[in-house]
Design a binder for these strands. Sequence first.
RNA 1: GGGGGAGUAGCUCAGCUGGUUAGAGCAGCCGUCUUAUACACGGCCGGUCGAUGGUUCGAGUCCAUCCUCCCCUACCA
Length: 1159
Amino acid sequence: MGGLPDSDRRPEPAQRGRLPEVRGHRATPSRPGRAGRRSSSRGQMFAPVSSKPDFVAQEHALLALWRDRRTFAKLRAQNADGPRWSFLDGPITANNPMGVHHAWGRTYKDVFQRYHAMRGECQRWQNGFDCQGLWVEVNVERELGFTSKRDIEEHGVAEFVSLCKQRVLTFAARQTEQSIRLGYWMDWDDPDQLRRLRDLLAADPGATVTVDGPRGPVTDTVEMIVGRLGMPDVGGSYYTFSNENNDLIWAFLKECHRRGWLYKGHDTMPWCARCGTGISQHEMTEGYQDREDPGLTVRLPLVDRPGEALLVWTTTPWTLTSNVAAAVGAGLAYVKVRQGSDLLWIGKGALKQALVGPFEILEERVGAELEGWRYAGPFDELPAVRAAFAAGTPSGAPYAHRVVTWDEVGEEEGTGIVHIAPGCGAEDFALGKSLGLPMIAPLDESGIFIDGFDALSGRDVRDVTDHIVERLRHHGFFYRLEPYLHRYPHCWRCGTPLVFRLVDEWYISMGDVYDRPRAELTAAEVDASLRYQIMEVVDGIRWIPSFGYERELDWLLNMHDWMISKKRYWGLALPIYDCRACGAVEVIGGRDELKERAVEGWDVLEGHTPHRPYVDAVRIACPSCGAPVERIRDVGNPWLDAGIVPFSTLHYRTDPEEWANWFPADFITESFPGQFRNWFYSLLAMSTVLRREPPFRTIFGYATLFGEDGRPMHKSWGNAIEFDEAAERMGVDVMRWMYATARPDDNILFGWHAADEARRELLVLWNVYSFFVTYARLAGWSPERPAPPLAERRLLDRWILSRLAAVSARAGDLLGDFDLLAAAREISGFIDDLSTRYVRFSRRRFSRSDDEADRDAAFATLHAVLVGLSRVMAPVLPFLGEALYRNLVVAADPSAAESVHLTTWPAEELAGYRDTDVEETMDQVYRATELVRSLRSQSGIKLRQPLARVWVALPGTELRYREDALALYAEEVNVKHVEVLADGSELVDRRVKPLLPKIGKKLGGAIPAVMAAARAGEVEIHADGSVTLAGVTLAPDEVEILATPRPGTAVAHDEGLVVVLDTVVTPELRAEGDARELQRAVQDLRREMVLDLDERIGLVVEAGPAAGRIAGHLPSVAVETLADSFDVGALPSGSATGSATVQDGVLRFAIVRRVRPNA
RNA sequence: GGGGGAGUAGCUCAGCUGGUUAGAGCAGCCGUCUUAUACACGGCCGGUCGAUGGUUCGAGUCCAUCCUCCCCUACCA
């Protein structure tokens, strides 16, 4: 269990922790009793930290710790009186284990909630599960091996519905466990409890059971407890199958009905023959797939023009059975062509694609002239067709196939003449309705031809193409058949190609679409059209990214009426009572109302949740004719279930005051694809109907997760990664970091390589932490040791503390603005600065003992930085943050908050560290350091080799903290003296850099000349700092003065910063460099020997000229390598030896151990 | 067919309201530092910023057209 401190096993402090002290040193060092107890011997303060952490093991240990200590409960209690921040969770479908794509969204949800918790805000922390609908049904069917609705009916609807509930409980438990593993803090149910309820439900739903709720034990039947999950007395996640959820949807539907928006539509709809239900417009997009269909061209002989025929084209041959008309474009040109003995009518523009073989044009007419021509249909002798035609048109006259005109007809595909079957296509239906054509509906709900179609009757629509083609050939209707590839709608759930069926479905009217811009509409017009009311609600919401706003409006403007019915079993029971006797429609607004209105069957429903089949038993009296009326058998669209949650989960009905405290939600976040027409839409629609106000203030959307290869994750493609596997192999902090550093509005490519990159970044941080603890233990340093006040610390210390303050302020603002990516980038940049600049620059300060005050300052600084960082990163990286915090703070200070997640956001506390002058100074020093490194690299002089002198020219601005900065610089670049070059130096020139953004507009066309002068150095610098270039005078704040090297000097420069390095290595410098070389070689050998970091040694250096030259430096080598003694002479036999490359060859040495290994 | 987004190094992506010399990480090559020792750092390599025009003193950035990919949307049989 990597890195988890021993102190975890100490008993928990009784009082609630105060915040850890991170400022400088403590005013009162410590209470004597405690200090005596633990830090008298070194190494007791911080638990050792491996530089090779096992993140996964650590995460498991921390999960156990949080569970045992009830840390989350403490957080909730701590914030109970804070200002409210309302997050509303979009329900996850409890139908399968959760995937890594869910983990992406859940990372956002967790990060923002944790951040607001650190702001002391009170939250609800309620997760949601989506429970009802075809998703679950299909999986239960699959498990049972069912292939049709008949199987369900035979199995028994009650049992089937129970199995659906059980499946939901199974996967709610599973997803709960997975979410907890992710570190997602919510008010989770106990997964074992969920499974227990599932088993009890299977055994006996009517048995009485008692469960623990937040307000005490709750006793009810198993079925009713399941129906009450998520409600205040039972607690935990909300479930959309809950009684309250269903009840409130009933109230919503009743309100729609009251306003006259609910209606029954008779229309030709996309239909899934396998699922036996219609598919609404909202569900269509997901199902479009490329598909090859038969492209069939058919001859239709004209009755009154012997020998002539129309050519029509279809990709759905089965619909020819129900053909009633052929449509032409009134204004399009049509031609009669001769092909062999055939005389065919066809659209002029369709000649090329529709005809095969040579032809001759005989005649041309516009479409309007063809109107009314009668033709013989291909299936005229079928009883169903004869019956429909005999019944005729609304006027009563018998009907015959004829040509009609339609303005939708085009010539780009097909023949320019469109086969019309109003019972088999939505547009055909609309046309047929407007012209009063007969309707022939050939299919039953399973896609089987009904009676009246002779040989076809009883056959599956998916399997009749060959038969139909054969028949057409036989009767002379066939012209041509060739495969046709197109996008065709499929069932989004089971993948079956859809057919169109004439059915009754229930809709909520979205109201008129006006042909004027919204701004010009009157209030009355808006009041009359729900879609515009929803748009007004959308206006009041902040959409991130902003294009979401336009997309939602676009959908609202174009959407059709909302089809809410489904001819299925598991779901919301639509509370619609459609009187067969008189046609009156009644909608019931809740369970209580139903009980009141019931005239029979209430006893059947009593004790059950409002689901099929029990709810079907209840009848009410028709308010209009008094006849007993049954509920329609349909269930509801599942987005009704999810859309009502701002009301059902916030207790709109039972506790309006509490509801008002949490409504509207401050924040929701979900993956964008699909939700504009689904959850976002249903939330908006339902809130608009019930309240006419936004259900949430801000919505943050993100894109889609793909495999590493950029394709959707797919098991058979080998690019799929299961959540559990990812969690246990890469660790969830690594996963969360990947998500945090991904652009939300772009698709994310998820894979093991990306995880390695993310881990590497976190390892850098971990290594800083490991470094700190390693040396703090060696030095016996503890946070209680007095440290110099900030003003007396080194520049480097003040710099990193200032950076920390800046980062916590910025990251906080960014998280508050829902910009996790930018916040993560702040943290990432800080980790880089901390590791590559701060620790790298100050490494020696932690190990040496000659300046204790400075050493303590370094420890105190790095400690404060790591503690501060642990808090800043806690929302994003809850495990790493906690690991650092517990070892760095809790282990040392039992009075501190026991978890980083119980601390507050540190920005305000740290603000005093901010010093932008220090930051600017350090940036210059750092850049100048890089230049020296570059020069050393070019001239082949190792950084280890001291040099005598470096000259530095700085940009025109003044270097602040000059002495400190230069001292630091000298040390860092390993030179004896640093000289700052003045303006008059012969090594550099002063150049002027005009600041284009400031002067661009003003100067316009004069710019090329000014820039050329600046480049050439033709500049006049005036006493007040202004300059004249090419006759143009610029103010001091319009230019920057830079240094540039004069030609011919060996220098490095960058944006006005110039360094000149004296590369002469004198014998003295060389000796010193060789000593450093020796020192490094000794350290190398120590490492090879695996000596303890603080193990003392004896050092023997082989006698010779080299040893002689460096003799003067040997004492310091000894100090640095922890040698108690050093000798120059023959190397003792049997000891470990090494060698260092020095000026004139190789210098050998030996290390003599003071203690025996394993002693 | 309409609407939106995107096209920047071999790969993944930065690049703010236009500012002159386009950056990072990874990969590759070469080095460096080091009691953070299976860590880290630097350098090199690599881009006609999808194409073509235009606006402008100046365009990866703004405009137009076209090409490619993705998403949304659509009644094309």
